[in-house]
């Protein structure tokens, strides 16, 4: 993995994409992180409340662990990674080989919508970081 240099332009573009899609759909928080646990973007009304550093580290580790579990049972990877809580839910979306989009949302937003929006965002976000 090469070092990642984030410019204001990259950040604004990524934030805008996420705001116009997932955040508009009503999710609470979206974190864009890399496999090392760095936070590349933190969007949504409740973004400031959460401990983004810990969450990113755990999400990256959990993502890596899940990929290993998939391999152990002969799967390439799992396509849906989702935890359901009493009030909050969390969805992990894999973007390319290195990026993870973590979405936190309540039951007012459907999982189907979140999955759909994450799928739509995948290529545009990858384009920004690969440009």
């Amino acid at each position: 993995m090469a070092d990642l240099v984030l410019t204001a332009e990259i950040q604004n573009k990524a934030n805008e994409l996420i705001e116009n899609s997932l955040v508009k759909a009503g999710v609470a928080t979206v974190l864009l992180i890399d496999g090392a646990g760095n936070v590349l973007a933190n969007c949504g009304a409740r973004g400031a409340e959460i401990d983004a550093i810990s969450l990113a580290a755990l999400a990256a580790a959990s993502r890596g662990a899940t990929a290993q579990i998939a391999k152990l049972i002969g799967e390439e990877d799992f396509s849906l990674l989702f935890h359901k809580g009493k009030n909050g839910n969390i969805h992990f979306g894999r973007l390319g080989s290195d990026l993870i989009l973590v979405t936190i949302f309540t039951d007012e937003v459907s999982l189907g919508l979140v999955r759909c929006r994450v799928a739509e965002l995948t290529q545009p976000i990858l384009d920004i970081f690969e440009a």
Partner: peptide, 15 residues
């Protein structure tokens, strides 16, 4: 990999 955030002027390193 380090993360260099030119916008917030932060450098993140992992040790």
């Amino acid at each position: 990999m380090a993360l260099i955030d030119l916008n917030k002027k932060e450098v993140h390193c992992k040790i």
